[in-house]
Amino acid sequence: MAHIVVITHEYDRLIERKFFRRSDSGYMIHAILEDLRMRGHSWTVAQGPSNRMKGDVAVLHIDATYVDPAYVDYGRSFPLCLNLAVSDISKGRISQARVVPGDGWTGPVIVKPVLNSGGVPEERLNRRARRAGKPAPFPAARAMRDYQLFDRASDVPADFFADPDFLVERFLPEVVEDGFALRFWVFCGGYDFCGRFVSRGSMVKGPGVFRSEPCAVPDDLRRRREELGFDYGKFDFAVHDGKSYLMDANKTPGRVPRSAGEVASPTGMASGFETMIRTALR
């Protein structure tokens, strides 16, 4: 049996402790770890790179777009550390649908921040650091909760193309018979599940989703996962005119959506992790 160390940011909280209610976590990794605990493994959280707890294997679980090298260095001290190679998930590195002036794209576009999840995780970490009387770890981060849509690239203000904090991307919702779809792929080691969320609106997000269904993982997306070095995570992608486009890659995904939970199960993810543990500790 292995002891797993979960390396988190100094100001992140894997588990939220609430008064008069059971402590819980919004992260998928927590459900995976609890499944592994039921199998006899144990786990603990190392909050911050200086808190160098000992263990058999680790998970680099930094909920921020960029990972400080100090966390990566700590992860290297373990025989296995999930996502050790994933220290940059900025949109500019991940997206396969970037639009630049003069590239010939004439369809609609969407403007996003380069920070993952709209920069909200960085904003949260900065706020907690300031409350503790410490400097903000991401002082230049700007949160953007609502993305902007334009009918064509020529309608986008030039400042967005020039600003390194933003990315202009092809807007590629997949049109289906009863709405619009966006595909997702969750994986841990050799286990994975791919599905498609369908929404009435072209911006496929939580409240508007009324159906999900399994679908196949495109081979080129599997190759992209290998190139990016992901052991564990969630990809959001679109299929347009028969081609897949990776839009977002998350190394600290939230809980599996309830509509997909019976298939993309924490138990399956835990089995994928357990296989990697056994291989690393032989």
Rank of each mutant, 00 (worst) to 15 (best):
F150H: 10
Y147D: 08
R170T: 01
F171K: 02
R183F: 03
A136D: 14
A140Q: 11
V175T: 13
R130F: 07
D155C: 05
G195E: 12
P137Q: 06
E169Y: 02
D155F: 02
Y191M: 15
F180W: 06
P157Q: 07
L115N: 06
V198Y: 13
R131D: 15
F171S: 07
E177T: 13
A181L: 09
D165C: 03
V175Q: 11
A143F: 01
D163T: 00
C188K: 11
P207T: 14
R196C: 15
Q148S: 13
K134C: 08
P113G: 02
D178W: 05
V175G: 00
P108F: 01
F180I: 02
D151C: 04
P157V: 03
L167N: 03
L125I: 04
W185G: 13
P137E: 09
P137G: 10
W185D: 10
L125C: 05
A153T: 02
F171I: 02
M144A: 08
S154M: 08
S154Q: 14
R152C: 12
F166T: 00
K134L: 09
Y191V: 15
P135K: 03
R152F: 02
G195M: 15
P164T: 00
S199C: 13
D151E: 13
V120N: 14
G206T: 14
L172E: 07
D151H: 05
R127C: 11
P135Q: 09
F180M: 03
R183Y: 01
E123H: 10
E174Y: 07
L172I: 00
D165M: 05
G195W: 15
G206W: 11
R183T: 05
P135G: 09
V186G: 15
F184Q: 13
E123T: 08
F166K: 00
D192F: 10
A181T: 10
G118H: 05
R170N: 09
V204F: 07
F161W: 00
F161R: 00
F187Y: 12
F161I: 00
G133H: 10
G201I: 04
R130P: 04
G119T: 03
R145E: 12
V176A: 06
